[in-house]
């Protein structure tokens, strides 16, 4: 099995397990405020790290290129309350223009 299939099926299986676990565990687990708080921050740190790594790295090097301009435009679009698809299109357009013409 290719690495991509392992990632696809492995992540799907574990994420489904987490979903079904929620319906099987006692509700008292949820009442622990510490678990609640840590869980609020998990998506924040992982998604922020993904933004940084996908924007500024290639392999194991930190590199500034056309992608940063695209993501900067996305941030401005989000600040101006643009919709999700519009924000992505503006980011792609900015990055593509710089990549192709500069």
């Amino acid at each position: 099995m290719s690495e991509l299939w392992i990632a696809t099926l492995g992540a799907s299986a574990i994420c489904y397990l987490l979903k079904i676990l929620g319906y099987s565990l006692p509700q008292s687990t949820l009442n622990n405020p510490r678990i609640q708080r840590v869980n609020t921050f998990i998506p924040i740190v992982l998604l922020s790290a993904l933004v940084a790594v996908q924007t500024l790295t290639i392999d194991s090097q930190v590199i500034v290129d056309h992608r940063l301009a695209g993501v900067a435009v996305a941030a401005i679009a989000l600040k101006m309350r643009a919709s999700f698809p519009l924000m992505m299109i503006l980011a792609a357009l900015t990055s593509a223009l710089i990549y192709n013409f500069i």
Binding site: V51, Q54, G70, V71, A74, L78, M88, A91, A92
Partner: peptide
């Protein structure tokens, strides 16, 4: 750039 923008 669209992929990190999606994460953002």
């Amino acid at each position: 750039a669209a992929v990190p923008a999606a994460f953002l």
